[in-house]
Amino acid sequence: SKTSNTIRVFLPNKQRTVVNVRNGMSLHDCLMKALKVRG
């Protein structure tokens, strides 16, 4: 089974995003990807 960790990230202006960290990806990469999608 694939394991994925879901991390809630609290952003300024009362924004919130959820990042799924996959195996083999660093938290930083996942964060940058999530913020790019939002931006």
Rank of each mutant, 00 (worst) to 15 (best):
S1G: 13
S1R: 13
S1H: 13
S1P: 11
S1L: 08
S1T: 13
S1C: 10
S1N: 14
S1I: 08
S1A: 04
S1Q: 14
K2R: 10
K2T: 10
K2V: 12
K2G: 15
K2E: 11
K2Q: 15
K2M: 11
K2N: 13
T3N: 09
T3S: 09
T3A: 15
T3P: 14
T3I: 09
S4R: 12
S4N: 13
S4I: 10
S4C: 09
S4T: 15
S4D: 15
S4G: 10
S4V: 05
N5I: 08
N5T: 13
N5H: 07
N5G: 04
N5S: 15
N5V: 15
N5K: 09
N5D: 10
N5Y: 08
T6L: 07
T6M: 09
T6R: 14
T6S: 11
T6P: 06
T6K: 07
T6A: 09
T6V: 15
I7L: 11
I7V: 11
I7F: 11
I7M: 07
I7P: 02
I7N: 00
I7D: 04
I7T: 03
I7S: 00
R8C: 11
R8L: 13
R8H: 06
R8P: 03
R8G: 02
R8S: 05
V9K: 04
V9G: 01
V9L: 02
V9E: 00
V9T: 05
V9A: 12
V9M: 02
F10Y: 07
F10H: 05
F10P: 04
F10C: 07
F10L: 06
F10V: 03
F10I: 03
F10S: 13
F10T: 05
L11P: 00
L11V: 03
L11Q: 00
L11R: 01
L11M: 11
P12A: 02
P12Q: 02
P12L: 01
P12R: 01
P12M: 04
P12S: 01
P12T: 03
N13I: 06
N13H: 05
N13C: 12
N13Y: 08
N13G: 07
N13T: 15
N13D: 11
N13S: 10
N13K: 07
K14Q: 05
K14S: 05
K14R: 09
K14I: 03
K14T: 08
K14M: 09
K14N: 14
K14E: 07
K14W: 04
Q15R: 01
Q15L: 03
Q15K: 02
Q15H: 01
Q15E: 15
Q15P: 01
R16H: 12
R16S: 05
R16G: 07
R16P: 00
R16L: 06
R16C: 06
T17N: 02
T17A: 06
T17S: 09
T17P: 00
T17I: 01
T17R: 04
T17F: 04
V18G: 03
V18I: 12
V18F: 03
V18A: 09
V18T: 14
V18L: 05
V18E: 02
V18D: 01
V19A: 10
V19G: 01
V19T: 14
V19F: 13
V19D: 00
V19I: 09
V19L: 10
V19E: 04
N20E: 04
N20Y: 14
N20D: 07
N20H: 13
N20S: 09
N20K: 14
N20I: 11
N20T: 12
V21A: 11
V21I: 04
V21E: 01
V21L: 07
V21F: 05
V21G: 14
V21S: 05
V21M: 05
R22N: 15
R22D: 03
R22F: 02
R22H: 12
R22C: 13
R22P: 13
R22L: 14
R22G: 08
R22S: 08
N23T: 09
N23C: 15
N23K: 08
N23H: 10
N23S: 10
N23I: 10
N23Y: 11
N23D: 11
G24D: 07
G24A: 10
G24Y: 04
G24R: 07
G24S: 13
G24V: 15
G24C: 14
M25V: 12
M25L: 07
M25T: 13
M25E: 05
M25I: 08
M25K: 12
M25R: 09
S26I: 15
S26N: 11
S26H: 04
S26R: 08
S26D: 02
S26G: 08
S26C: 14
S26T: 15
L27P: 00
L27R: 00
L27K: 02
L27Q: 00
L27V: 15
L27M: 14
H28D: 14
H28R: 12
H28C: 14
H28N: 06
H28P: 02
H28S: 07
H28Q: 15
H28Y: 13
H28L: 12
D29N: 11
D29G: 12
D29Y: 13
D29A: 13
D29R: 05
D29V: 09
D29E: 04
D29H: 05
C30W: 01
C30S: 09
C30G: 08
C30Y: 03
C30R: 03
C30I: 05
C30F: 03
L31R: 00
L31M: 10
L31Q: 00
L31T: 04
L31A: 04
L31V: 07
L31P: 00
M32S: 04
M32T: 11
M32I: 08
M32R: 05
M32K: 08
M32A: 03
M32V: 12
M32L: 13
K33R: 10
K33N: 03
K33Q: 06
K33I: 02
K33M: 04
K33T: 02
K33L: 04
K33G: 02
K33E: 01
K33D: 02
A34V: 03
A34G: 10
A34E: 02
A34P: 08
A34S: 08
A34T: 03
L35A: 14
L35V: 09
L35M: 08
L35Q: 01
L35R: 00
L35P: 00
K36I: 12
K36Q: 08
K36R: 10
K36T: 06
K36S: 12
K36N: 15
K36E: 06
K36M: 14
K36D: 12
V37W: 04
V37G: 04
V37L: 07
V37A: 09
V37M: 12
V37E: 01
R38Q: 04
R38S: 01
R38G: 00
R38L: 02
R38P: 01
R38H: 00
R38Y: 04
R38C: 00
G39V: 06
G39A: 06
G39C: 12
G39D: 15
G39R: 10
G39E: 06
G39S: 12
